[in-house]
């Protein structure tokens, strides 16, 4: 068996007295869509930010294509081939859509004309070709989320980390987003998503992992995992899980 694309080994993070993530280990295979679930405060976003380089793990290692990337800074993580989106989209408001999509291109190339052309292709891919020259501050919230995704793609990632794909989207927009994520995976990009909306998780992922209180409590196919007592307990409390069992 080949080595996994991403191999998280025993990472932990403590904020003062709060142990946000403890001894978290999981693997991500090439071409997979893996969903990271868990109730609020389970440590999902902390784990996410450690992989993306925004937090330094207190211990453990994160092997990406066999190389330890734990404790690298975000810009070096990007250059290693990992892109991320943010829970609240963070567009460059006074730049146009295409300019937003050009920034990431410079991490891989210095040919401005080629970077612009690729940015226009990504705008078309997102279905935002008509808005290519619109300043981002005039876009709708959902278009900004799509742009956030496109901007991550502009760095030509091998692995894409997505924090809450459909937060605040209408059901129709959610469906569009799910389709978009699938098409990204079909282009050979491996995806790790942190997500609350079960419908999205079921539609997208082949495998889910569940965190609670900083620990991993389940790992498996979405259908199986959501009916496990420890997962139900984490989401709905002891009594609900007992009643179901």
């Amino acid at each position: 068996m080949n080595a996994p694309l991403l191999d998280v080994r025993g990472i932990g993070k403590r904020f003062g007295g709060v142990h946000a993530v403890r001894d978290l280990s999981f693997r991500l295979e090439q071409g997979e869509i893996l969903a990271l679930l868990g109730p609020n405060g389970a440590g999902k976003t902390t784990a996410f930010n450690m992989i993306a380089g925004f937090f330094r793990p207190d211990g453990g290692e994160i092997l990406f294509r066999g190389r330890d990337i734990a404790r690298l800074r975000p810009w070096d993580i990007c250059k290693a081939g990992i892109a991320r989106t943010f829970q609240l989209s963070k567009p460059f408001a006074d730049l146009t859509v295409v300019e937003n999509l050009m920034v990431g291109g410079f991490a891989r190339s210095s040919d401005t004309a080629a970077i612009r052309e690729r940015a226009e292709e990504i705008a078309d891919f997102l279905g935002m070709g008509r808005q290519a020259d619109t300043e981002v501050q005039h876009l709708t919230a959902f278009d900004r989320r799509k742009l956030e995704l496109g901007r991550a793609l502009s760095t030509r990632p091998v692995l894409l980390l997505m924090d809450e794909v459909v937060a605040g989207a209408t059901p129709a927009e959610g469906q569009e987003m799910v389709a978009l994520v699938r098409r990204i995976r079909d282009r050979g990009i491996t995806i790790l998503i942190v997500e609350h909306v079960m419908k999205v998780v079921m539609a997208l992922s082949e495998r889910v992992i569940v965190m609670e209180s900083g620990r991993l409590i389940a790992d498996g196919a979405p259908k199986d995992v959501v009916s496990r007592p420890e997962v139900l307990k984490a989401y709905f409390g002891e009594q609900y899980a007992a009643a179901r069992a």
């Binding site: 990007c78 991320r84 943010f86 963070k90 408001a93 920034v103 901007r151 760095t155």
Partner: peptide
Amino acid sequence: GDRDAAESLGIS
């Protein structure tokens, strides 16, 4: 525009 986003796009 946004320092965090810039960092995630390969910018120190």
